[in-house]
Design a protein around this nucleic acid. Sequence first.
RNA 1: GGGCUCGUAGCUCAGCGGUUAGAGCGUUGCACUCACAUUGCAAAGGUCACUGGUUCAAAUCCAGUCGAGCCCACCA
Length: 726
Amino acid sequence: MVELPKVYNPKEVEEKIYNLWLKSGYFNPDKLPRRHRKPYTIVIPPPNITGELHMGHALNATVQDILIRWRRLQGYKTLWLPGTDHAGIATQNVVEKELKKEGVSRFDLGREKFIERVWQWKEKYGNLILEQFKKMGCSCDWSRTRFTLDKEYVRAVKTAFLDYYKKGWIYRGKKVINWCPRCQTSLSDLEIEYKEEKGKLWYIKYPLKPKTYNLKPKTYIVVATTRPETMLGDTAVAANPKDKRYKNLVGQITVLPLVNREIPIIADRLVDPKFGTGAVKVTPAHDLQDYEISLRHKLPIIQVIDEKAEMTKEAPLPYQGLKVLEARQKVVEDLKNKNLLLRVEDYLHQIPKCYRCATTIELIPSEQWFLKMAKLAKMAEKPVKKGEIKFHPKSFEKSYFDWLKNIKDWCISRQIWWGHKIPIKNEADVLDYNPPTTRQGDVLDTWFSSALWPFATLGWPKKTKDLKRFYPTAVLSTDRGIINLWVARMVFSGMEFMKKIPFKDVFLHATVLTREGKRMSKSLGTGINPINLIEKYGADATRFGIAWQIMGGQDIRFVEDNIVMGRKFCNKIWNAARFLLMQKPPLINADSVRRFSLIKKNLTPADKKILRALEKTIKSVNGDLENFRFGRAAHTLYDFFWHDFCDVYIEKSKTELSFMKAKVKMRTKFSSPKQKDLKTKKILLYVLLNSLKLLHPFIPFITEEIYQKLPIKNKQRCLMITEWPK
RNA sequence: GGGCUCGUAGCUCAGCGGUUAGAGCGUUGCACUCACAUUGCAAAGGUCACUGGUUCAAAUCCAGUCGAGCCCACCA
C-alpha cells in the first residue's frame, strides 16, 4: 500500500507528472481516446519574444489551461495551440538595446547581421517562454507550436496581403503619418500613447500684408500654438467661417514671420473658435487636422521636420538641422526680438509617444502602405452586434464598437528590419517573396500578422484537416489593452479569409498590478517572475492563488498571500489523500466508484450530506466555468474540500471506520462493522476522486499525482482524461 | 473633451435589494495523541468613500461630490 509523505513537495512531483503527461500524448487532440470527439480549440495569445513571461501571462495561462483541462475532462477533443510572436518593433528594440551595451548600432551591423542577431534572441527567449508555460503545467500541444515568422506563417501573411491588394483595399500613398524618430519607423494610430505634459501656449502676431498702399503697419492676426517651430511650415492661417471676428480678414494675406512667406487667411469649419484666439496657423505637413484643411483648400505642404526630428532644408537657413526643441527655442527667441510674441500661457497637453520606446512622435508626410478599413470595420462589427462573438465582461464591447465607428485607414508598413517583408515593391508588379534574412525595404506592422493567428496557425492558406476541425476556436482569453490592436483585427481577418468568426467568446482577463497598484514592469523593477513563485510554492499553489483572485475586476493587485493559501490548500488535499490511503482501502472498481450515488442504501446522515454537497459543488463549478468565473469556482471548491469534506466528513468518518471501532457504537442496521467500514471507505474514495477531477483544471499536478496512487481497478492512464463529474 | 471601471476588516478581495456584512492572508489566545502546526479551536477587527433621494427595507438601486485607474479623441 502506498504511503504518502507528510508534507506535499511539489518539486518531487511536478517534473515527473509533466513527463507522464507528455509521454501519454494527450495534449495532442489526435492522440486522445475515442471518447473525445467534439473539437474545442484555444489558440494562445502568442507572447512577444521580447523577454520572459510575467504575472499577466501566468494569469492568462492559468485561465486557458483551466478551460482546456475542464473541456478535455468533459470529453472534448481539445487543442490548445501554443506559440510566440516576433513582435516587430518591440523585439527589434530589445535587441538594439543589447547591441548598445556592446557599443554598436544596428546600422553598424547591417541588416543581414542584425536579423541574424534577432533570430538568436528569438531562439533563446522563444524557448524560455515555452519552458515557462511547461513549468506552469500548461497542457498545450507542443507538436503544433507556431511562430509568427515561421516559414508557413510567411506564406499566410503574403496570401493575406495579396488578397487585400487584389481587392484594391491595400494602396500606397503619401500621407501625414505618425513617425517615431528613435525607432525610425511609421506607426499606426493604435501604437501611440498619449502622455500629459506641461507645455506653453504661445500667442504669435502674424503681420497682415497691406491690401493697398494705405499701409496700416501695426495690423496683425494673432494665432496661438503649442509648437511654434512648426510655423516655419505654415501655409495658411485659418478661422471658423462663423467667427465674426475674422470675417473681414478671411481672404487677406499675412506674411509669415521669420520666413516672409505670404500665406492666405482662410475659413474652415474644423477650426474651433473657442480655442486660443480663434485663428490658427495651418501646418499641413505636421498636423493631421491641418493636413485635412490643406486638402480642402489646396494648400501647399511644406515639410520642415524630417525623420530624425530635425529641421529640414525647407526651413529658413538659421533653423536648418536644429532639433525640434532647439528650433522651438530659437523661434520663440527670434519672435520675441521682433516683438511678434504677444504672450505666453502655461498649457497642459497630451503628447503623443511611441508605445514601444516612449519617444515623442512626430507627424510627417511619408509614403506608406495603407489598408482600407471601411468594409473591414463593418465585418468586425457585425458578428459582435449579432452576438455570435461575446465579450466577457460585455461592457468592453462598447469600446470595440467605438473604435470601429470612426476608424481610419490602417498604415501597415514599417521601416524596421525585423518582420514580414511587404510582398510587393510597387503597385505595378508583384514580387516573389524572399526569405526574411535577405529582405530589403519595408516590413509589415506586426499586428498585420498576428491578426491571422487563429487560422494561420492551423495551416491556412492551405485547406488542412486541422483548419477544418479546429476553426473557429472557442475562446480567446486576452488583455483588455489589445481589444482594438489585436482582437478586432482578428475578427475582420477571420471574416475575410475564413468567412467565419475566429472565436465565440472573448474573455478579457484582469490586468495584474503590483500591491501598490502600479503596473508590473521589468524596467521599473516591479515585475514578478511566476517561475520564482513556482520555485517557492509550487505550480499548483501559484495557479490556485491566481485563479482565486480572478473575480471579474479590471485589475488585480497581486499579493503573494493568495499563493500561500494555495500552498496550504494543496497540503490539505495531500493529507486528505494520505489519510484515506492510510486506511488501506480495498481495491475498488473504478465504475462502482464513479456511480456512487444517493440511491445507495445504508447511508448515514453524514454520508448523505457530503454527497449532496458534492453534487451542489459540481453544479456550481460547472456554472462558474461556463461563465468565466474562475475565482468563484476556486472558492467553492476550497470551501467544499476543506470544510465539508475534511473538517466534517473525514472527521466524522473516523468514528465509522473500523480502525476506530473500539470507540464506535455498533449500529444494528449493518450486518457487520466490516461492511460499514467498506462503505465509508468507498464514500471517502468517491468524494476524493470527484474532488480531484473538479480541482484538476486548477491544480493539475497534485491531483494527478494523487490519482496515480489511488487504489482503483481499471484506472485510466491519467486523471487528465477521466470523465468529468456531471 | 467623450466613455468605462472601481472605492467594504490592517492587506488583497467577495457580496450587488431582505435574517447578527463574508473569505484568504495577517494579528491575539489556547491546543502537537492516532491525515495535515503548510494543522485545529477560539477571539479581536468594519458609521460597506461622502451627501442626498427611491423603498416597508440599501453596502446593494438612482443623482451628485471627492478619490483611484483604464480606454478612446486631429482642438492647434
